[in-house]
Amino acid sequence: MRGLLQLTIMSFKLYLREPIATFFTLAFPPLLVLLFGAMYGNDPDPMYGGYGTMDITMPAYTALILGTIGLLGIPITTSGYRELGVLRRFRATPMRPLTYIAADLLTNLTMTLLGMAILIGVGWALYRVRFEGQVLSVFVAVVFSGLTMFAVGYLIASLASGARTAQVIGMVIFYPMMFLSGASVPLEVMPEGVRRISDFLPLTHVVTLLRGLWFGEGWGEHLTEVFILGAIFVVGAGLAARFFRWE
């Protein structure tokens, strides 16, 4: 895996130089905390099992970050690189394709964790948000959910002809999920009919899994989510590997 470290560091720097992507990963979720925190505060609410709006917002916005990166960031960047010939240039070196993918995954996971850190920092500073789970468990769940979303992102990148198409496909998939999965608006406030649709959206299961583990539930209580996300990962990654093109 020669070049993996250098490539990861470089892609990380390049990510931070991309103002729009950086804004949506690092700044947008804390801004939502400021906005909705001002509107709803963080008082315990029986509707949310005794937690406050800002408490349950932490795992939800984490899912939002994963969705943004996986369904918009990865497809747009990857198919843009292919369209322009950046991937071609990499392929002309001895660097292995797997190294490129690994560096990209590492970069995006690191950005997710960084986004989470800022989000939780703001939540803690303003609302003393609660965390009752195990750090390692939540970390594993974030990585697992991330790989699922990123696999879908690579699949979009594989099927799209260019950056524009990738952006359109990503938005068509992501925007309904953004509002209907509980990632930005809690499902508890949604009417029954909407919640039935939510069950079919992958991001809903990310939100449910993260929120459960966040507040101390065990993996055993979330086998459905693990199974569904696992299946999406296997199918997404398999199809992406099958259809991915370097040029």
């Binding site: 470089m10 390049l14 130089r17 690189y81 322009l84 010939g85 071609r88 240039r89 002309a92 001895p94």
Partner: peptide
Amino acid sequence: AERIGIQLQESALPARI
């Protein structure tokens, strides 16, 4: 690949590198 150098007719690098 280790022993050759390649300049492609058409390629690019990331815009901000």
